[in-house]
């Protein structure tokens, strides 16, 4: 290829090659402008908005700094909502570990080659695809005339379903309007986020350690408790960041499935939308941010960031 013809380009590229700072500045201008200024600025404006208040007569935002909106956040009702959300996030995280572990372990230790690629893909695809449609699928499953009820009926277990739904706390008129249904959907949606880092952690587990443990007479349970679990804990912590954080902020699942008892995400959504109270929505949104901040600090201690 004729090098000489590009002499202008050549001189330009030499110019930039020798000026590292200028090159860096040009590379950084757009991403920093977007993420730090626009996105970072938006996060800042979120905090700022929480110190405004809504004028109860005109319904417009009053932009004189006040703590009034924050006083509205710390009511018993809101704290109960926060408590319920954190409870659900915890339950979903634990369930994801329990359901995810056998899958992660089976993929990491007993498959290889094409089979492994296919299985990892099978876990990965739900993570990228059609979040909303995947929630919707459960509406079809859990409706009182839907698939799950039909199965219970076929196996003559309708009374079992009735009994489960009559339980306090998890029950409801039908599976699709019960907390149990909500929990199943949350776990279903966020499970892949737990399986993948867990699987990566099991992959890094030295086989020699497991063999040594067995040779020295440890039962599988002891090996799991003393070798496997402590070594995969960073992976579990990494996965739990997602299962916990994503459950914490979700409002789509509680809107479609469940008994319409509010979650933090739902409260933020309805304050902003129906009530038109952006300052209160902003202040409520700080709750998951703070909870996640605390959670991340804990997860970091367990080595989660290296396992991401």
């Amino acid at each position: 290829m004729p090098f000489r013809e590009f002499s202008l380009i050549r001189r330009l590229s030499t110019y930039f090659y020798t000026r590292r700072r200028l090159r860096l500045a040009l590379l950084l201008a757009l991403p920093v402008g977007w993420l730090v200024v626009v996105y970072g600025g938006s996060l800042g404006s979120l905090l700022l908005n929480s110190f405004f208040r809504i004028d109860s007569f005109s319904g417009t935002i009053d932009r004189t700094p006040t703590l009034e909106t924050w006083r509205q956040v710390f009511t018993d009702a809101n704290m109960a909502v926060a408590g319920r959300t954190i409870g659900m996030a915890t339950a979903v995280t634990i369930a994801s570990v329990l359901i995810g572990f056998p899958l992660a372990y089976r993929i990491a230790r007993f498959t290889s080659g094409r089979a492994k690629t296919a299985l990892v893909l099978a876990v990965l695809i739900p993570l990228w695809s059609s979040y909303l449609v995947r929630v919707y699928a459960w509406k079809l499953l859990l409706a009182s005339e839907g698939v799950a009820a039909w199965f219970f009926n076929v196996f003559g277990a309708s009374s079992v379903l009735g009994w489960i739904l009559s339980l306090p706390l998890i029950g409801g008129p039908s599976l699709s309007t019960s907390s149990l249904g909500q929990f199943l959907v949350f776990t279903y949606i966020w499970l892949p986020y737990m399986v993948l880092p867990m699987q990566a952690a099991v992959e890094r587990l030295p086989e020699s350690l497991l063999e040594a443990s067995a040779d020295l007479g440890a039962s599988p349970a002891t090996t799991f408790r003393r070798i496997t679990w402590p070594l995969i804990l960073p992976g579990v912590a990494a996965g739990s960041i997602f299962t916990f954080s994503l459950t914490l902020g979700d409002y789509i699942i509680p809107t479609i499935i469940g008994n319409s008892s509010p979650f933090i995400g739902l409260a933020i959504y309805s304050q902003q939308g129906v009530a038109g109270n952006l300052p209160l929505a902003a202040a409520l949104a700080i709750i998951p941010v703070v909870v996640m901040g605390l959670y991340l600090t804990g997860a970091r201690k367990l080595g989660a960031f290296e396992a991401l």
């Binding site: 950084l28 991403p31 920093v32 993420l35 730090v36 626009v38 996105y39 970072g40 600025g41 938006s42 996060l43 404006s45 979120l46 700022l48 908005n49 935002i61 960041i241 954080s245 994503l246 914490l248 902020g249 979700d250 409002y251 995400g265 933020i268 959504y269 902003q272 952006l278 929505a281 902003a282 949104a285 998951p288 941010v289 996640m292």
Partner: peptide, 28 residues
């Protein structure tokens, strides 16, 4: 490190935080 943090933040934080933050900025 701050830049790397800001890049992953929008998918690490729940979507509603990103959403309401942008909404606040738009309103402001």
């Amino acid at each position: 490190d701050t830049l790397s943090l800001f890049i992953v933040l929008p998918i690490a934080l729940p979507g509603i935080i990103t959403g309401i933050a942008l909404r606040s900025a738009i309103s402001l």
